[in-house]
Amino acid sequence: MKRWLLPHPILTPTLALIWVLLVNSLSPGAIILGLLLGWAIPLFTLRFWPAEVRVRKPLTLLRFVVVLLYDIVVANVAVAWLILRGPKHTTPAFVVVPLSLTTDIGISILANTISLTPGTVSSWLSPDRRRLIVQGLDVKDPDALVETIKRRYEAPLLEVFEPC
């Protein structure tokens, strides 16, 4: 019964928001139609959703997003500087990040975060999902990079998405 009323509590507001953005208007009609779509689409696509996502600490997630946005700007300036200085000054390297996260959503958000931030791209996830291989543009100290990724990005995600 409850599943029928509100099939996907996170997807509904997200779809409503996307609809409002798409029609570019804040009129009540647009909002109601958006909410209606947000309710109907998850209802019909329920079978495709493998597991329900549970956000445990929204505030930690919010802080994570703010840190991420700041890091994206810093990353852009750093990468732009490296590109302008030329290829001779870069030391590319592959590093292996051991994962503590186990859920699908946690791992995919971590991989996307790594790709968006300072000179790193997540390249490959081992089949057993225990290690993520990351390619760095300018890696002076591989251990420090792994340590930064684990502390700055993985720790908040662990709090938000992992059941404990």
């Binding site: 990468v79 590109i83 290829p87 870069t90 000179g119 791209v121 543009l137």
Partner: peptide, 16 residues
């Protein structure tokens, strides 16, 4: 355009 190998080229477009 100017980076030497594929993996370093990947960084420019995706970030900047």
């Amino acid at each position: 355009a100017r980076m030497p190998d594929f993996y370093t080229r990947l960084h420019g477009p995706t970030k900047a």
